[in-house]
């Protein structure tokens, strides 16, 4: 009862306070106010778990190793001059882009195959193909590690059985890079598959029929109808996966721990190594901040395209 309360507080100015309280009530009733109040918990969560840590990381990145003095952008300077870190930038980009491309291609291929299985058998296959995605990656990566491990490698055993040579999966830089990508693709492709399957199902059959009558072959239908109709989902899935893959930590940490010779480190695992294991928290923060501008630029362009198409098509 705000009007009663304010009237009690200011008995001499009853009319003015009544007017104020009614405008207060109007304010509380406005849709935007209600919307703001209802999103407040989310804003608090984002503020506490995203905005604050991010600002704190920026602050940390400007401190010296002991965190006693402000040193501006010196941490970034030092990092950019460091050959290992330049390797991390290269490896992060190579890892993320290759893995996302492969995940997108394999996910699309799987989704297309699933889409054409009669719906009866589809659920069974969909469930099985989703398994890699639902196993905690730290655990499944451990499994992969066993399969790659030189002494007991089951993959090498298979290769040998077919007369092939043993491969130093985790010991040689290029094979280690490939191994990390294989595991990431194995883990992430089902996500693409499920997103693309949903997108495929949302394309009306009549568009394919119209295309077939217009003279399109299966391939032309795919290029001119399916892919353009899926563009938004493809863009958003790729963007989302790019962010997650860039920030990947567990697979690299479990499989190679950044080795051999720090050549398979990505931003997150290197930030952990520098910041936590070597005890240079400000520099670790600086490493992790390198991802931000890269991803922000990609996200800006992808989301702009998605918005434009949404307006034109939906």
């Amino acid at each position: 009862m705000p009007s009663d309360a304010s009237a009690a507080l200011a008995p001499g100015r009853a009319p003015a306070s009544a007017a104020r309280s009614s405008s207060l009530r109007r304010f509380a009733r406005r849709r935007s106010t209600v919307a703001f109040l209802m999103t407040l918990p989310l804003i608090a969560v984002i503020g506490g778990l995203v905005a604050w840590p991010a600002s704190y990381a920026i602050y940390l990145a400007t401190l010296n190793r002991r965190m006693t003095a402000f040193i501006g952008l010196e941490n970034f300077d030092i990092l950019l001059e460091n050959e290992t870190f330049r390797g991390v930038i290269w490896q992060s980009c190579f890892f993320a882009i290759t893995a996302v491309l492969l995940k997108a291609l394999i996910g699309f291929w799987l989704a297309h195959m699933l889409h054409h299985i009669p719906s009866k058998g589809q659920r069974k296959w969909r469930g099985m193909l989703l398994v890699p995605w639902v196993i905690p990656p730290a655990l499944s990566t451990l499994g992969w590690w066993w399969m790659f491990e030189p002494s007991y490698s089951s993959i090498n055993w298979l290769l040998n059985a077919f007369g092939g040579p043993s491969i130093p999966w985790l010991g040689e830089p290029w094979w280690a890079r490939i191994s990390v990508i294989i595991v990431n693709v194995w883990y992430g492709a089902p996500f693409f598959m499920i997103m693309y399957l949903a997108a495929l199902k949302s394309v009306p059959d009549q568009l394919y029929e119209a295309a077939a009558i217009d003279g399109a072959t299966g391939w032309q239908g795919l290029v001119h109808v399916t892919l353009p109709m899926m563009r938004n989902i493809i863009s958003i899935t790729v963007l989302f996966s790019l962010i997650v893959t860039f920030a990947n930590y567990d697979i690299v940490r479990v499989l190679t721990n950044g080795g051999p010779r720090d050549l398979t480190h990505v931003f997150a695992s290197y930030a952990f190594q520098v910041g936590v294991l070597s005890g240079n928290i400000p520099r670790g923060a600086a490493v992790s901040l390198f991802m931000f501008p890269l991803l922000a630029v990609v996200a800006f362009f992808v989301l702009r395209g998605v918005n434009r198409r949404q307006k034109e098509m939906a």
Binding site: P204, Q206, L207, V225, P228, M229, E312, M313, A314
Partner: peptide
Amino acid sequence: NYALYPHM
């Protein structure tokens, strides 16, 4: 329902 290609 016309089946026009919405992206064209």
